[in-house]
Design a binder for these strands. Structure first.
Lengths: 121, 121
DNA sequence: CAACTGTTTGCTTTTGACTATAACACTGCA
DNA sequence: TGCAGTGTTATAGTCAAAAGCAAACAGTTG
């Protein structure tokens, strides 16, 4: 289970840590029951602060993807369904593109609905 | 051509200015050849700084949506209609990904809606 | 017990967004 | 031509969020 970041990216480091774990989960590189490396370990490896890593881990906990308890490393929960994650990732990417194209929420949803309909035939 | 912002949003004001223009463009409210209000005017109306508005305008220039020259107000370029095409393309790509991930139409729309909502902030 | 884990607290440093002010160079129009 | 209005550039200050630093705490594991 490898966690990587890009210090040059404007995205907050903690978000990148969480995104890195989500990506591993979505690609099947990590599965429920697996454990994440310890926050201190990740912090030392990446050359960032312990708090920053933990903030990323806590994002994942808030999303129900991992379970955190002191004394133990983070564990990937059973409910971390790969397909749903992939769907959420695709939706996130689409939302970003739609908003950047200047679409309102309604317009973006309408465009998605039409694309889904024409694709089902 | 109206430009609006939400001071309570965590999104940078300059980005909001640019997004507001893109939205007008995507919805057909603004068309190629139209001119944007002067940056000083917008800044005074919205109660924000001239630089902030200009930074938003420069984003649009970098995207090729408007043309900026000193002495004249910004002009919407001819190729600026392609934003709508981009939305349709993005929607099609998302639909393909969602169906491939095994999502139903309702699930795909729900995922898109949530992504749009969480991204609004 | 010993060595690890996440948790919490308090503080400092850094970074970026935004503001403020001013001068500059170009355009459009009376 | 004169002049008001435009975007451009430069410099500096303010503020909040992100990130870092340090230390103690409270669990788990072997």
């Amino acid at each position: 289970m490898l966690i990587t970041i890009d210090p040059a990216s404007p995205q907050p480091l903690a978000d990148q840590v969480a995104a890195s774990v989500r990506a591993a989960l979505a690609s099947g590189l990590a599965a429920p029951g697996d454990r994440l490396p310890s926050a201190r370990n990740v912090a030392a490896t990446l050359g960032i602060n312990l708090h920053t890593v933990l903030r990323g881990y806590q994002q994942l906990r808030d999303e129900g993807l991992v379970e955190l308890r002191r004394g133990r490393t983070a564990v990937i929960t059973e409910g971390a369904d790969r397909l749903r994650l992939r769907l959420a990732e695709a939706a996130e990417e689409y939302a970003r593109a739609a908003l950047h194209a200047g679409a309102t929420e309604e317009e973006a949803l309408a465009a998605a609905r039409q694309a889904l309909l024409t694709m089902r035939d």
